[in-house]
């Protein structure tokens, strides 16, 4: 059964795209899964990491992006979604006989404009504003779900903020991974995104859901080892489920996202970040297994 993993945080610059791409590589290489990365972020960083600038630009010119897909298919049946997907992307070499591969539904800078157009299109039907938003989100969710047909795992790389696409992704996801930087404002961002993911309105309602029952897990990212990080992580662990994996700031992670046409092994690409990625992959997919559900 296809699983949907959203990587989300309303705050920007926390490493959502980086973690999404790393997990896509890990799931394909080590989990032997057919992975689709759906790039919902208008910065398109994940697409650039997997396709390079030229590849992404070609996808845009050919109308093979998520914005094109939503626009083309919003009012129609979405039966030919494979046209929008680019297979065997990224610079990790997978054995020919292994089933694992990474595909991408490229992101687009037009996605925000397209969402506004879809909203206006629905608005012509003379509905209340909230009802229109619910309809747009619902339709986007159904369109995203179509991509589950031909893969084992769909990673939804969400944008910062709360677009319709981000909300639809959170609705659809079986699990949500929330990377965060351990700084002062991150705690507010986690509190807010947790309310959305658990579909509750107050922190009291959120607190009534046991940490083990939550649909999301938080990942401390970009750690430098400073004492303030420890303080904040301990404080956040009172209210949110935290993964045991902690991702440090490493040059090898920064370098891994330079686009490179040469295929390489996971060892070559991730170097000293490899043990952290192995641990992250093991932990994320261990928590995903028992919670698998049809969205």
């Amino acid at each position: 059964m296809t699983q949907f993993l959203a990587v989300s945080n309303r705050k920007g610059g926390v490493g959502k795209s980086t973690i999404s791409v790393m997990l896509a590589h890990a799931a394909a290489a080590w989990g032997r899964q057919r992975v689709l990365l759906m790039d919902l972020d208008t910065q398109c960083n994940a697409s650039l990491m997997l396709l390079g600038g030229d590849g992404w630009e070609k996808a845009c010119r050919a109308g093979r992006t998520i914005a094109d897909y939503f626009y083309d298919r919003f009012d129609k049946s979405a039966d030919d979604e494979s046209h929008y997907v680019i297979n065997n992307v990224g610079d990790i070499a997978h054995a020919r006989t292994a089933p694992g591969r990474v595909s991408v539904l490229p992101g687009s800078q037009q996605l925000e404009d397209i969402q506004a157009e879809l909203y206006l299109k629905q608005a012509k039907k003379d509905l209340h504003a909230d009802a229109i938003a619910v309809q747009v989100r619902g339709r986007m969710k159904r369109l995203m779900k179509h991509f589950g047909m031909d893969c084992d795992l769909v990673i939804l790389d969400c944008p910062p903020g709360l677009s319709f696409a981000a909300q639809a992704a959170l609705d659809l996801a079986d699990r949500v991974l929330v990377p965060f930087r351990p700084d002062f404002v991150s705690q507010f961002a986690l509190d807010r995104v947790a309310l959305l993911i658990e579909r509750v309105e107050t922190t009291e309602q959120l607190a009534s859901i046991a940490l083990a029952q939550r649909r999301y897990s938080c990942l401390p990212n970009y750690l430098t080892g400073a004492g303030h990080e420890r303080l904040l992580i301990d404080q956040l662990a009172l209210d949110h489920p935290l993964l045991r994996t902690r991702m440090p700031v490493l040059d090898s992670i920064q370098r891994a996202f330079d686009w490179d046409e040469c295929k390489k092994s996971m060892d070559q690409k991730y170097a000293d970040a490899l043990p952290y990625l192995r641990r992250l992959h093991g932990e994320v997919f261990a928590v995903m297994q028992p919670s698998a559900r049809s969205a």
Binding site: L223, G225, P275, Y276
Partner: peptide
């Protein structure tokens, strides 16, 4: 070996985070 490598790397990270300045 791979598992040991991962565990030790994580342990070092945690110790670094727990260490006073």
């Amino acid at each position: 070996l791979e598992r040991l490598r991962g565990e030790i790397a994580q342990l070092r990270l945690r110790r670094a985070a727990d260490r006073p300045p």
